[in-house]
Each structure stands twice: as structure tokens, then as C-alpha cells.
Design a protein around this nucleic acid. Structure first.
Lengths: 132, 132
DNA sequence: CAGCATCCCCGTTGATACTG
DNA sequence: CAGTATCAACGGGGATGCTG
């Protein structure tokens, strides 16, 4: 209000608050859902067929199909169909999907690194109802 | 098969497949759920009270309470109650919670950086039913 | 083998009302 | 202000059966 004052920017460092609202949360939900991350992870070593994914992951065909479709739709994996009998379909990470691998791995590493602390916090919370 | 051949390792770099199964997926679900990430993000600038969070995020008291509880249970935030009238409760990221901020931001940045590509892929998929 | 269609369960979320 | 309690709606996800 006072003249000579520069209106201080309302949000100083603010790395996340506004950024988390839109597409970012949708993405987090995507990799955070029950199956996408598992599939992405298993495809990180190279293409796999439908039945191979099915064997490696404990998942129903239904959910495997649905999840593969939405990953394909988002341009994270490709679907390659071979006109053989019996039919064969390969799924593979796209370049875009591979760029996603790195930040995802960051979270996976965090999880592996800190799982003990979280479990410890849970146990303490169960006992005391708080953690400090 | 042929002698003199070194059996190529079945899983060369294998960053994820085994690691994604257990706690990592649980964590991804946690930050990937509808509210946790939003709350964590808004707390990244410092502590906030219940009502402040409620105002900043479009969320019901119920879900705010539930989500705060489970974040507290996991040792990611602390709950500080002031014995005043009217009552006041502050929520703040723990050191553990703050370490989570970095990998999470990696994903948020990815999302902001590539949202265009994903939307483009979706549009193309809607038109052609595939993306190459 | 790959995948769509149907039915159904149940966990998550939201709306509303009430308490310390 | 900061919750808790209760109820109803929604949607993810499993089981099963059928097709190209």
C-alpha cells in the first residue's frame, strides 16, 4: 500500500503449490495407480509380450489390457502386433516413456532408502498416537 | 548355447522390476492418491494450519483429516496442537517428509515438461487408435 | 494368444450433521 | 476452529465366459 514499497511477490520460493494441481497430479495418479508403475518397470529392460507381462506380474488380463491401453494412449508405450498364428503383441517403452523412468526411479530409490523410517514411524504412531 | 559364448546376463541394467513391487509401489500410491501430494506441496513452504490447508485446497474436512492422519502416521508430517480457544493445529513437514520433496519434484517437473507431449499423444490416439 | 464384455464386490470419497 | 460419525454414491478391480 505505502508508496515506495515494492509489492513483495506473493509466493516467494514456492516450488510446488501451484504446480501440483493440474497435470502433475494426474501423472502421479497414473504411476501411483495399482499397475502402471509395475508395467513401466518391467518394460524398462526391453519389449515384452502380453503373456510375458502377465506371467511376471500378478495381474488379471483385464487390468493388464486396460492399463496397457491407457499407457499407450498417453504415448508412454507402443503396441506392436504381429500377424502370426497364434497372435503375438509386443509392448515397449517409447522414448517419452523412457524419460519418465528417471524421475520415477528417484521415487523408487527414496522408497527403498526410507522404508525403514516409515515403518518405524508407523509403529511409533501405533503405540503413542504421535511421533515426537 | 555354443561354447565360447558368454551367456548374456538376463537382466542387464534392471533398475526397477524387482524394486517396484513392494514398498515403492505403496509409496507411489501414497503420493499418487488424490490429496497427499497436494498437501505435501503446500506444506513445502512452511507449516500451515488446518483451516489454511482447507482454504488453499479444494478438499472436504473429512478427506483433509484422513489424509493428514496417514501422512502423520507415516512420519512425513507433524501435528502440533495449541491449547487455545479457539483451537489451533499446525501441520509441518518432518525432515523425512522434506527429503521426499526432492524426488516428488522430479516427477512434478517431468509432468510440467512433458504434459504437451502426452496431450498430443492422446489426441493422436483418439484419431488413429495408435501413435506411430 | 490376446483381449473384449458382463457381473459384482467393496474400498474410497463426498455430503451432511454433530461435538469439544 | 478442528475435528468425529454416519450414510450414500462412485468406481476400481477381480472372476468368468466368449471371440478373432
Amino acid at each position: 500500500m505505502s508508496p515506495g514499497h515494492i509489492e513483495t511477490p506473493v509466493r516467494p520460493p514456492a516450488p510446488c503449490p501451484p504446480d501440483c494441481d493440474g497435470f502433475a497430479r494426474e501423472l502421479l495418479s497414473r504411476v501411483g495407480d495399482k499397475w502402471s508403475l509395475l508395467i513401466i518397470g518391467h518394460l524398462s529392460n526391453g519389449p515384452l509380450r502380453f503373456s510375458e507381462l502377465r506371467r511376471k506380474i500378478e495381474i488379471s488380463q483385464r487390468m493388464l489390457t486396460l492399463t496397457l491401453r491407457s499407457l499407450e494412449k498417453d504415448g508412454l508405450i507402443t503396441r506392436t502386433q504381429f500377424p502370426t498364428i497364434p497372435p503375438r503383441v509386443d509392448y515397449e517403452l517409447t522414448p517419452l516413456g523412457r524419460t519418465l523412468l528417471e524421475p520415477v526411479m528417484g521415487l523408487v530409490l527414496w522408497a527403498n532408502r526410507h522404508s525403514g523410517e516409515v515403518e518405524h514411524a508407523r509403529a511409533r504412531f501405533a503405540r503413542t498416537g504421535t511421533q515426537d
